[in-house]
Nucleic acid binder design. Sequence first.
DNA 1: CGACACTTTGAAGACGATCAACGCCGGTGG
DNA 2: CCACCGGCGTTGATCGTCTTCAAAGTGTCG
Lengths: 245, 245
Amino acid sequence: MPDKLVAEVAEKLALFAGINADDRNSMLQEGRLRYVTRGEYLFHNGDPVSRFYIVCSGSMRLTRETPDGKELTTDITCRGKTIGKFDILKSFRHHSTGACAIDDAVVLEFPSIWLKNIVRNPIIALNILSSTSQYVHMLEIESEQKSTMGVAQRIGCFLQRLCVMYDLDPRGFELPYSKALIASRLGMEPETFSRGLATLGQRGIKVNNARITISDIEALGDFVCDHCSLAGECVTHRKLADGLS
Amino acid sequence: MPDKLVAEVAEKLALFAGINADDRNSMLQEGRLRYVTRGEYLFHNGDPVSRFYIVCSGSMRLTRETPDGKELTTDITCRGKTIGKFDILKSFRHHSTGACAIDDAVVLEFPSIWLKNIVRNPIIALNILSSTSQYVHMLEIESEQKSTMGVAQRIGCFLQRLCVMYDLDPRGFELPYSKALIASRLGMEPETFSRGLATLGQRGIKVNNARITISDIEALGDFVCDHCSLAGECVTHRKLADGLS
DNA sequence: CGACACTTTGAAGACGATCAACGCCGGTGG
DNA sequence: CCACCGGCGTTGATCGTCTTCAAAGTGTCG
């Protein structure tokens, strides 16, 4: 059962794109399965860096603690994503974030040296560079949105991305995480998130508790998302439109 | 003269760390020097991606246009930094930012295929991965600060980083860019920046027009910067303290 | 049923954006 | 040499938005 899960995940892993199954499997040999229960930490912000992780099932929350004790969510990683590569490749000794299980999760665990080794394979290096470049782009866009957009717009953008990323049906889907978690991920208070959601009805996104309906692709005009600044090349909107037709 | 400049820059380039001079020079062969004057664009947001650039002197502003026509500053790159790697490695066809000269600048220009080629060299790939990982960390921290800190604190953090990054004397230095540009870089209005600067006196940072004096390292306690979340490993603060002693 | 986590709602307050006006320079042209 | 202009920076007043604090509503699970 675990082996099958690992094989399934590995096959679709962006990290291993273009690597043949044999090489992939021999690399995966060194991995150790690890089960984390809801709320358990893989490591905390500030712990020594020693492992690299691939998420096989469930979702993890990457967290950072502010000096005054609040815990922020810097990212949410789900099946097929990795945890720890930046901390390892940066060669810092301590984790810049913590990793906490949102629900019961299964991760594949490697010593950090493993990543440093396989990265010498040019295909792997390019895979990481490519996915990292996209991540950088997303970070830049989200950071920009924090300065230029209101809460409602940011929520709308996030819902669209969510919909495409998780392959949900825009005409009706359930939020995959608690609202409090999403609010934290978006850098806003739960109250603000709640109020923001309530106003989305006027803009083509209907909300009913945790059920979201994105019906009117036209009304989304002012929800500029991660790729929209690239003339006519907005992957998110294109896929959304596909989903609606 | 230009050759000397290029050699000087190349020697210290993070991209080429660990590459011997011969290999470095043969890679640099393909580069073409390009002079840009203050205000001139290397490319605009949305242009096709075709080149990779290394900044040899002067500074460039990376910009993005919002749907309603405002121009934001996503980053400022100075001597020894590169422009365009994310757009190239992401394999998007269009630039996600524009690049505009802040002052008269000299850049070394390569076709984008050049980057894709040298990245097959594991040392180069690791260099890029390492610097990118650090950039990701900085983006995450700055994004987090936008949600959790007030204007004055963000400005204080930025000034400290500036001081370390440009190797300025904390006991007295001039802002290297116009205040309007810095405000844009920080995602705030010039008025807000001006008012924020004015309040820094109470916190150990004195301001006199464009002259900054960071005198009291103790008073900086609440200026948590890019590495501070890592227990006792704050590079910025350590270097600052060195500069003051 | 009751405890608890999560969500929503209301009212107050803080903060940054915006608009308007002014001071300060460096450059241009008469 | 002086008058004018435009870019930049500051300051003041106002407004909208998000956070904060408080309280009540909703759901789930023992």
